[in-house]
Amino acid sequence: LMVLFLVTEVSEFILLGLSEDPELLPLLFGLFLTMYLVTMLGNLLIILAVGSDSHLHTPMYFFLANLSFVDISFTSTIVPKMLVNIQTQNKAITYAGCLTQLYFFMVFICMDNLLLTVMAYDRYVAICHPLHYVVIMNPRLCGLLILVSLFISIMSALLHSLMVLQLSFCTDLKIPHFFCELAQILKLACSDTLINNILVYLMTSLLGVGPLSGIIFSYTRIVSSILRVPSTNGKVKAFSTCGSHLSVVFLFYGTCVGVYFTSAVTHSPQKVSVASVMYTVVTPMLNPFIYSLRNKDVKGALGSLLSRNFNSISH
């Protein structure tokens, strides 16, 4: 309880955003508003399609609907505040608002990461143990996997947030980013951040490398299992069930690694901010397209959902 009373005198931070050029701000506002609306619409359609079509009431689509919900929440943590700041030309965010944004950002990015790992496990069971798939991936296990992922994400974010609460900050409170990112907040602290940095490296290793290793292991077994399938059609069909998930995994980890290397090789915070747009805004927007364009079942469910709504409106 004592941790909660160690709040600094800081009342607000300044988010410098992607650009300080006034002529670019209307363009950025239009671009990010459009991307946010497309993200919301695309992911909501996936959730509605999975919920309304009984053919999609399977573990794979259950996890996909959860991924869509997390993507909506993830983007909503960052973009609305960014749009308000651009529109009002006020870059301030309150201390409490910044820590709240930091907390939910960390919850949802961790949840995204763990869900992709759970989905890889689902594909591994479906292809390597098809006869036992229904028994292994039962509703109880699916629900448990979601709850465990959520618990880990909440506890990880809570731990980081409580550690930030203990920091005191200098007079320069400008964050060279468009949202309250942990690494940028730690750079502004006047007090010792050694324990915070150790925690960042430790949690990144556990919750970054761990799930990625699980995904790589799952796909190693999947590929070796598919290669043993005698018919070419069988191989193509098996690979096609993994194609969408694999595309999303490459997109998510590729953009995260891209941001990490950008921050390592450049001292320009603006370039790091632009690179961060990829995994915070672009990836959640593209995920529904990847799943709907590559998947006949999702396309069929979306088509029937839209036609039903259109018919009800016309009548």
Rank of each mutant, 00 (worst) to 15 (best):
M285P: 11
V298A: 07
F289T: 02
T283P: 01
V281T: 14
V274M: 14
K296H: 08
Q270G: 08
L305S: 06
L302I: 14
L286T: 11
G303Y: 15
G303M: 14
N287F: 06
V281N: 11
P284I: 01
L293T: 07
P288G: 06
P269W: 03
R308W: 10
L305E: 04
L302V: 13
P288T: 01
Y279A: 01
D297I: 02
D297C: 12
T266V: 07
V277M: 09
N287Q: 11
I290K: 08
L302S: 07
Y291S: 09
P269F: 03
Q270I: 00
K299E: 06
A275I: 02
A275H: 07
N287G: 03
Y279P: 11
M278P: 01
L286W: 02
G300A: 14
I290Q: 10
G300C: 14
L302F: 08
V281D: 11
I290F: 12
L306W: 06
S276K: 01
A301G: 10
Q270Y: 09
N295F: 08
K271L: 12
P288L: 05
A301V: 01
A275E: 05
L293D: 04
R308M: 12
L305K: 05
P284N: 06
L286S: 03
A301N: 06
H267Q: 10
N295Q: 11
L306D: 01
G303Q: 15
V281Q: 13
V277A: 10
V277F: 03
M278R: 00
K299C: 12
Y291T: 05
R294V: 04
R294M: 14
S268N: 15
G303R: 15
M285N: 07
H267K: 05
V298Q: 06
I290E: 10
M285R: 10
Y291W: 14
V281G: 12
V282W: 09
V272C: 11
S268H: 12
V265I: 15
V272F: 08
S273M: 06
S273D: 09
A275Q: 05
P288I: 01
